Simulated scan of single mutants.
Amino acid sequence: MKHAPQDVELEIVSQFNGAPASTLAESHPLVRAAQAVLQREYGRKPVHVRLGASVPITAVFKEMLGVDTLMFGYNLPDEDVHAPNEFFRLSSIGEGTRGWALLLDELSRFPVEAFNKP
């Protein structure tokens, strides 16, 4: 291999297949409910973003339970999640608690069948 020093043999063995990335279409009821809550709370339309991280349990929920997962967090980009200098604003705790309550209320407005669409 071109990255191994001469006289060194490099073998890469994959022991696990990893977890597939998780994403939801903007038309999914979870996304629509989250957008409605965030727009109501902050007065502007939220932006649907994809992050580079994966959360393996989302694939397990989808495979074993047949349900999708929404990532609905209140950390901000400058808080350096999982870094040595990570922090979380105390004000986000109240915003998140209120947001989750509003999200559950908003989700209750969708018929169960809306969540079973591919």
Rank of each mutant, 00 (worst) to 15 (best):
H3N: 11
A4H: 01
Q6D: 10
Q6L: 14
D7W: 04
D7I: 00
D7H: 15
D7R: 14
L10P: 00
L10Q: 12
E11Y: 03
I12Y: 07
V13T: 14
S14L: 08
Q15H: 12
Q15M: 15
N17C: 08
P20C: 02
A21I: 09
A21E: 06
T23H: 11
T23D: 06
A25W: 01
E26C: 04
E26I: 06
E26A: 10
H28S: 04
R32E: 14
A33N: 04
Q35L: 01
Q35F: 11
A36F: 02
V37W: 01
V37D: 02
L38I: 15
L38M: 15
E41V: 04
G43V: 04
R44W: 03
V47R: 07
V47N: 03
V47D: 06
H48C: 05
H48I: 13
V49Q: 11
R50F: 07
L51F: 13
L51V: 09
L51K: 13
S54I: 14
V55N: 09
V55S: 01
I57L: 15
T58M: 14
T58D: 01
T58Y: 04
V60D: 09
F61N: 13
E63N: 13
L65M: 13
L65R: 08
G66S: 07
V67F: 02
D68I: 04
D68R: 09
D68T: 04
D68G: 06
D68P: 04
T69W: 02
T69F: 01
L70T: 03
M71P: 00
F72W: 07
F72R: 06
F72A: 04
G73L: 10
N75Y: 14
L76N: 05
P77N: 05
P77A: 09
D78T: 08
E79N: 07
D80F: 12
D80C: 06
N85Y: 05
F87P: 00
F88A: 13
L90A: 09
S91P: 00
S92G: 07
S92C: 09
I93V: 15
G94V: 14
E95F: 02
T97F: 03
R98V: 10
R98M: 05
G99Y: 00
G99P: 00
W100N: 08
W100T: 13
A101L: 15
A101P: 00
A101G: 13
L102I: 03
L102A: 10
L103D: 10
L103F: 07
L103G: 06
D105A: 11
E106T: 02
E106L: 01
L107C: 03
L107Y: 01
R109G: 07
F110Q: 14
P111C: 06
E113N: 07
A114M: 05
K117E: 08
P118Y: 01
P118K: 14
